[in-house]
Amino acid sequence: MSNNTHSPLLDDHPAIPESPAQQHKSAVVTVTDPRGLHLRSGRDVVRTASLFQARITAANLSRNSNAVDLKSIIQLMQLQARQGHDLQLAANGPDADAAIEALCSLF
C-alpha cells in the first residue's frame, strides 16, 4: 500500500539527488520505560506516526514478532514491548527520514 504520488516535476529538479518518494529508513530503539510500551506511551507513538505520510512499521526483535503498523494502537500493543526490548522501526515514503527521527525520540 503506497500513496507516494509525488509531483513528477520533482524528478526533473537537479538539486534533489533522490526522489523523496524513495526514502527508506529504519532504526532499532530500546524501550527504556520500566512499564514497557504501554497504552499512553503507545498513544503518543501513534499520534506522532500519524503525522507522516510514510508507511511505518515496528517489529519486536526481542520477541521475534512480525512487523506491525505503527499507526495502529491495537497492533502496537501486540508487540508486548517490555523495558529492554529492542524494536526495529522501519519507514517507507516521502518523509521516512523525518518520521524515524521523530519516533526515535519517544523511546
Binding site: 519486536n60 520477541r63 514478532s65 512480525n66 506491525v68 491495537i74 497492533q75 500493543m77 501486540q78 508487540l79 508486548q80
Partner: peptide, 8 residues
C-alpha cells in the same frame, strides 16, 4: 480490533 488478537 475484533480480528486483532492481543497476544501477537
Amino acid at each position: 480490533a475484533l480480528s486483532t488478537p492481543k497476544l501477537a
